[in-house]
Design a protein around this nucleic acid. Structure first.
Lengths: 248, 248
DNA sequence: GGGACTGTTCCACGATGTGGAACGTCGGGC
DNA sequence: GCCCGACGTTCCACATCGTGGAACAGTCCC
């Protein structure tokens, strides 16, 4: 794909030395207007930023965050693992990490509690977003038109407690936005409760979600909802901050 | 530009967690075949590479080198400055760094000698490539069809010693390829001699060129050609190696 | 003051990217 | 063992998106 290759050619040239539009056009042998458009797109993506004079372009800080994941211990899912372990320890239940995948959440990591009775590992599973707190927390961050797209389809129910009505879901999302987290009580599977919060970066982009779940007979302990929800939200905020530090 | 934005959307998702084609298509909400093509292009660019299973994609090492330039002391031109200073000291003449810009070289940095009689600073200047050793060293790395394009135009002469014939230039480039460096003796300006070598990465891509120049009445000292050329080639090779280390 | 250079914007057009579909392979569940 | 769903890859008709030339205003230097 030509335009993607050209974009990277420009980035590689900028890695050598910052440059203006006309000079860059000469350096990469492309017409000036093409280069100007590519640089504008790269700038909108934060892959490129302007220097202090406002005319010279240089590599942008968004690439620092992307490059930081090359060393396998630093991608967000890897960064999240110790956080999950700590959450599991603090709550004595399992903690998990998920990302949005279309209209589903894809569970990518889980840290289990030390207890004998555990909920199975959901890593690798794809679940409709409205059925689980991680999904609800992510959905609550979506623009209205994307949410409209989600509710325009039939909402699958898995248990008698599942949300299956669009109005019900919209009201729920409004609650989630207000609270900053979502509780799910046997809406996805009988016998499982959980609480989730979205990991949102400084620009409003949703990087993923973090949650704690456990058997509904013991989780959440009565009166412990707010403490657990607070721990989950703190963890999500700390991961968002760590990702921001990597991007510079 | 849609495809460039989509490419970065994929990179940002990969920064969170590695992914296969179908999962990535779900995560970024694009058709599978579009994602496959984008990933193929990104892979060809080394912005993305495959994991050990050959199916999962992750961020590629080329981005490490690009991102490393964000901290202004690490882009290649900045990395070259201490090398230029050392070269200037070792040769007691000025040393410079240039990149290709169309059919010209663009001088980006220079370290001067401590001598009273100096050659002016060429930083910022654009010079036809065939007139200066940096340009010849870069041209010598070009594929034949690109060289054909260069020689198909009239070759500007600046002094009586300038190369102005295509056959002459082609023969010269063959010499440069064999020697690994290029000497220029009053071909660009009366009274200036210089020697240059290209900075070539492991894939054959030319990152720039490095040179030493001085007044022709004293540079090069008789019998000193090989030592100076050796220093310039060593410096170019060291910069290429440093750039390779940054890319991982 | 004029010329060369810069960055930005516009526009006709065609080439490039698009997305659906087909297909073969693989793995998991029954 | 078989079937089905999921995967990645490839192809192709088509239209839209990217292309590059040109115009223009601003700046700087001689």
């Amino acid at each position: 794909m030509q335009s993607v290759e050209r974009a990277f050619k420009i980035l590689e040239a900028l890695a050598v030395a910052p440059s203006g539009v006309s000079d860059m056009a000469r350096r990469v042998n492309l017409p000036k207007s093409t280069v100007a458009r590519l640089l504008a797109t790269l700038e909108a993506t934060n892959a490129v930023e302007r220097g202090p004079d406002g005319l010279t372009y240089r590599v942008g800080s968004a690439l620092r965050g992307i490059a930081a994941s090359i060393d396998g211990s630093i991608g967000l899912v890897e960064m999240a693992r110790p956080t999950l372990a700590r959450l599991a320890s603090l709550t004595d239940e399992a903690a998990g990490f998920a990302v949005a995948a279309g209209y589903q959440v894809h569970y990518l990591a889980q840290a289990d509690s030390d207890r004998t009775v555990q909920v199975r590992d959901w890593s690798g599973e794809l679940i409709p977003m409205h059925l689980v707190p991680s999904g609800l927390a992510i959905l609550a961050q979506w623009p209205a038109e994307d949410i409209d797209g989600y509710v325009s389809r039939a909402l699958e129910g898995r248990t008698p407690r599942s949300i299956t009505g669009p109005d019900q879901l919209l009201a729920r999302l409004a609650d989630v936005r207000k609270a900053g987290h979502a509780w799910g009580r046997e809406e996805f599977a009988e016998g499982i409760n959980s609480v989730g919060a979205a990991i949102v970066d400084g620009t409003g982009r949703v990087l993923g979600a973090i949650h704690v779940h456990g058997p509904s007979y013991r989780f959440p302990v009565a009166g412990d909802d707010e403490r657990v929800a607070g721990l989950v939200m703190d963890a999500a905020a700390r991961l968002a901050a760590a990702a921001a530090r990597l991007s510079g």
